[in-house]
């Protein structure tokens, strides 16, 4: 069974992000880039499906600049079989819809039975791409999945989707698109052997023209990227715990009117 996993390279959460000179994007200087954490759950799940079935291929795909190859290599080191890099200046300012269209096109070429995404990339936190890819492919999808079991005959998958107040368990025929929520699994580290073996695996560069995608104006544009407005300075309630607790409750009631 062929499985495609879509990943995105994002700044490490711990990295300090600074607004770039154009006030619309971030300054890339000094940023540590990582595979978006939810995408690691997606890669892990795909590898587990393959291992459990004892056959198949895991193809990891990303859209991004040259540096995004590092993310692909990380996934290859984890155990993915090969990688596809949608790498074209035409996608430099791609919004979710343009990314989804490109990913859908390459997935259509690959023809997998299962596609995994992370529930969202932790840079723009839009969380739309997995669903939009499903729409472009015309496939069913389930987001924020916490459990997954592919049927023995590979005709369908049973998933537990996280919803408010519980889980919904669905049977979905393949092919379909799933997005991984934390809790689905514990992603493995790449092993040293995996790292050493990754460079022998294929990373194929794909241009917009290879997918037959023409120029298509963005549907969303960034007006500005801004820092957070400062929060008013807080108040530390000192003194005996009992007095501090009393004063806090009074303040919450009378000043903040929060209770």
């Amino acid at each position: 069974m062929k499985i495609v996993v879509a990943v995105k390279q994002v700044p490490d959460t711990a990295t300090q992000v600074k607004i770039g000179a154009d006030s619309k994007g971030i300054d890339p200087a000094g940023i540590t880039w990582i595979v978006s954490p939810y995408d690691e759950f997606a890669v892990e799940e795909a590898l587990r499906v393959k291992e459990k079935r004892g056959d198949g291929e895991v193809v990891v795909v990303t859209l991004g600049p040259e540096r995004a190859k590092e993310a692909l290599r990380t996934c290859l080191a984890m155990g993915a079989d090969r990688a596809i890099h949608l790498n074209d200046p035409a996608w430099e300012a791609a919004d979710s819809l343009a990314v989804s269209r490109a990913l859908a096109a390459v997935i259509r070429q690959e023809g997998p039975q299962l596609v995994f995404f992370g529930r969202q990339a932790i840079d723009d936190d839009m969380g739309a791409v997995s669903t939009q890819v499903a729409e472009f492919l015309g496939w069913p999808c389930a987001s924020w999945i916490m459990e997954e079991t592919v049927a023995a005959d590979a005709s369908s998958v049973r998933v537990a989707r996280q919803v408010e107040g519980g889980l919904e368990i669905f049977d979905i025929p393949l092919p379909c698109v799933l997005s991984a929520q934390k809790g689905l699994n514990e992603p493995r580290y790449p092993t040293l052997k995996g790292i050493m073996g990754a460079k022998k695996k294929e990373i194929r560069d794909v241009k917009a023209a290879d997918l037959g995608l023409g120029a298509d104006g963005p549907r969303l544009s960034v007006v500005a990227l801004e820092g957070l407005p400062p929060r008013p300075p807080g108040r530390i309630l000192s003194g005996e715990p009992a007095a501090a607790a009393k004063e806090l409750v009074r303040s919450l009631r009378e000043d903040a009117k929060a209770i």
């Binding site: 290599r73 990380t74 580290y189 092993t191 790292i195 990754a198």
Partner: peptide
């Protein structure tokens, strides 16, 4: 090299 960096990162994370 990229492999050395990845091995370093793996060791750090572990």
């Amino acid at each position: 090299t990229e492999e050395q960096q990845m091995i370093q990162a793996l060791a750090r994370e572990f």
